[in-house]
Amino acid sequence: MKHFIFFFTFLFVFSACQQNDMVDPTLEQPTKINYSTKNAPFNQKVAKKAEEIAESYDGVPKAISVNTDRKLLLAFQLDHMKRFQLKQKEKTIEKKLKKSFRDYDVTVSSDMKIYWETEKLINKLENLDKREMNKKVENIIQLSREET
């Protein structure tokens, strides 16, 4: 019995610390925030439009997006119960966006990490110049392409 108590305390403490360590960005900002992207190095109109398109899909509560002059990156979240169709959803949205923005190289991801990174990037858009931003977006796109 002693061992079980030890074990469960261990598990509890362990999982508890892990959870506390991670500040959930999506929980902190539950509603849409108007990022001030006016001073962004690239005009974010396309990204805003893409967000709207993605969010018009059923089961997509939230999408965020950035664009450079050539690239468009969109990350979205999906209702948990719809996650079985995650890959299809990703494909449909990507197709739609590619159609809507033919001039852009479109990347769509549903990966949580990509979402977090994109969000971080959007929060500091104002302080970046064009070269830096190109690099950052490129990095995220590379990350999303990584396999295994």
Binding site: D111, M112, K113, I114, L143, S144, E146, E147, T148
Partner: peptide
């Protein structure tokens, strides 16, 4: 770290 949901 730099891991995505897949690579983590």
């Amino acid at each position: 770290f730099h891991f995505t949901q897949q690579t983590a």
